[in-house]
Amino acid sequence: MEDVAPKIIEILKKNMKEPPETIPLETPLSDLDIESLDLAVIVFDIEDTFGIEIPYNANEEVEDFKTVGSVVDKVKELVAANNA
């Protein structure tokens, strides 16, 4: 589970044109250079990497997609549910 955060940060960076050196977990996603279509690609990438399905809808504002850390927590939860 400890590799979830670095993997997600790596995916975020991969999908940004000019990614910052470091992305702290408390960073709001809205502060990153990510547009709605990028987010769909990022979610796909995360699903593919962790073999999970994330119920994300671009039309809804949800807590799970507020910060980098909340995405990490959600993914950990889904991975755990998958392994249960």
């Binding site: 987010l39 769909a40 979610v43 796909f44 994300y56 809808n57 671009a58 039309n59 809804e60």
Partner: peptide
């Protein structure tokens, strides 16, 4: 689905509860 723009429960234009 991959575009994340579809509603799971209906098409509610201009409405508060619209979700895709």
């Amino acid at each position: 689905q991959g575009m994340r723009v579809l509603s799971p429960n209906g098409l509610f234009p201009f409405s508060k509860h619209r979700n895709g």
